[in-house]
């Protein structure tokens, strides 16, 4: 058993940098500090910059009625987190934060939505101005394409990237699709360890 574990560890050590290179990511030389924002999480509790401080976070922006991109991104992030849990101790695992930018449709279902992917996921939303404030800090973009008051099936154009926020509450990197779980986990593992020459 010990030999098997050693071989697995050795394999990960050798293969991880190579796999991580498959990930499309941009690491910021100077992390971009997020400003204050006042949002609410899926449990109805306030969620502010303080909730991003003290741990790594992966923040993805989307909307709950997105049938295609958002579910697969969140499912992949759950798989990334699962893979990463084999590489880092629990206290260093990043929290997954879903910034729901369509509050009228998102707020009523946000708790069920994030729990659908993983109970540890955090969904946040709030007033449009506060959503825009955080999105701006993340260098993300979104636009609700509601054509009329009775249009209830509108699309939301939004950034595809996931922001990697460091424990100081600053954006350290952005990763873009595909979010291949193993490669992305290796990429994040190296990033969390400060090995930034991975692009």
């Amino acid at each position: 058993m010990a030999i098997r574990s050693f071989c697995l560890a050795l394999t990960l050590l050798v293969a991880a940098p190579a796999l991580a290179q498959d990930v499309k990511g941009v690491i910021l030389d100077e992390p971009s500090q997020l400003g204050d924002f006042q949002l609410t999480d899926h449990r109805g509790e306030p969620f502010t910059l303080e909730d991003l401080v003290g741990q790594w976070s992966l923040v993805f922006l989307g909307f709950t009625h997105c049938p295609d991109v958002c579910p697969f991104t969140l499912a992949n992030l759950e798989a990334v987190r699962s893979q990463l849990s084999m590489l880092v101790p629990p206290e260093r695992l990043p929290q997954i934060v879903f910034l729901a930018v369509d509050p009228a449709r998102d707020r009523p279902v946000l708790a069920d939505y994030v729990a659908h992917f993983d109970l540890s996921f955090i969904g946040i939303t709030g007033e449009p101005g506060e959503i825009a404030r955080l999105a701006h800090g993340l260098d993300a973009y979104y636009r609700l394409e509601k054509k009329s008051d009775d249009d209830d099936a509108y699309d939301v154009v939004h950034s595809a990237a996931v922001a990697v926020v460091n424990p100081a509450g600053a954006v350290k990197a952005k990763i873009t699709p595909p979010f291949h779980p193993q490669g992305t986990a290796n990429y994040l593992h190296l990033l969390l360890r400060g090995m930034e020459g991975i692009n």
């Binding site: 009625h65 997105c66 579910p71 009523p108 279902v109 069920d112 939505y113 659908h116 099936a153």
Partner: peptide
């Protein structure tokens, strides 16, 4: 489907 979400792919 996700409870409360009325769209499906």
């Amino acid at each position: 489907g996700v409870p409360g979400v009325d769209t499906r792919a």
